[in-house]
Write a protein that binds this DNA or RNA. Sequence first.
DNA 1: CCTATTAAATGAACATCGTTCATAAAATCG
DNA 2: CGATTTTATGAACGATGTTCATTTAATAGG
Lengths: 204, 204
Amino acid sequence: MAVPEAVATALRLVDEDGLDSLTMRRLAAALDVQVGTLYRHFATKQTLLAAMAEEMLAGCAGPLPDGLTWREQITELAGRLRMALLRHRDGAWVYAGTHSVGPNTLSYTDTLVGVLRETCPSPEAATRTALAIVHFIVGHTLEEQAAQALAETELPAALTLLHAALDPGTYPNLAAAEATLTSTDFVGHFAHGLNLIIKGLAGE
Amino acid sequence: MAVPEAVATALRLVDEDGLDSLTMRRLAAALDVQVGTLYRHFATKQTLLAAMAEEMLAGCAGPLPDGLTWREQITELAGRLRMALLRHRDGAWVYAGTHSVGPNTLSYTDTLVGVLRETCPSPEAATRTALAIVHFIVGHTLEEQAAQALAETELPAALTLLHAALDPGTYPNLAAAEATLTSTDFVGHFAHGLNLIIKGLAGE
DNA sequence: CCTATTAAATGAACATCGTTCATAAAATCG
DNA sequence: CGATTTTATGAACGATGTTCATTTAATAGG
């Protein structure tokens, strides 16, 4: 049983049936192996999930196209991480629940900090900005995929439930926000939030 | 068995032993009740967690002090949400894993959008900005509490592991970032990220 | 080629988990 | 007081992460 194959299979199982359905037993069955065998290669299920998170980030730190402004470089890198998390079902959840120190994760952060050092007044500011960007991406993607998970069957019910709770008398601002809140234009939401951060960076 | 008491007890159990230790059986035992009884009040464990998330946000939308600039109002509201999540062990995780539409959650978002409407050019921009701020807070607090969880025993090991992986040849920027990355000044990190967003808002 | 040593896979088991349900107790109310 | 509804019980079901003694396969040395 090869470790990289096991990780790839685990990601495939998550894509097919969601993260709660990823079970050590099911993974073992998909690999034609007994459950105990997995524990010779992964000390714990958390270790497996960390390896999956690391694998998801493959390619995210690849070379940036020439001639990009630093703003465009940040947008490109942020978009890559978002897409990497979106590429697999519950990907943001897997990523948020682990803390990989593998080469993909490290080189992504290294690249992002490198771009930010061109603009930020100090390495500390660049690092803190990188953290803020990643945290925004994780939070945003977590919610985007939560909406995707609901979309399967229960989104309409959730939306009418929300709409019923939105009394314009008690929540005047939410009434004005409802259209945007319930919108599925996550690309737009993401761009808006990221541009806020980038604009804030310009003042440094 | 009263529902609010059950939610409060569940939060207390999480504070004492962490979220993985919150079990329907353990909660039932703490309430001097059988397991099945819980399912008469909470259709599922997810329902319980949503009620806990809603409870955590109590007071977050309370009236803002007079005389605050909109910048200060945003800082105050964001700080309240962060503190609400930090107040309970694994609070960010509970919050991120649920989607409450209770009054605490709704009025918090309503208040935040309300403040942002003073500054943003449209209700849509205000709503998207509110989303971005909340997503940043969730991502940030998730990592802050992950560090807290590690701090119990395994933080030193994790840090030396990270340090060993940080070859300055392959990750030149991470080498410069290590001090900040491994810092525990989460207050500073949070303020930096939030100020970035607020500064970006000024350009609108 | 055979053997000794190491690595890997097996299969069964353990404690625990979320959830369900028929039954029994308790509370409510006409 | 008796009938009806609400709440609690206790036992069970299937499934989960994890462990471990044992067996099987692979590897290396003479």
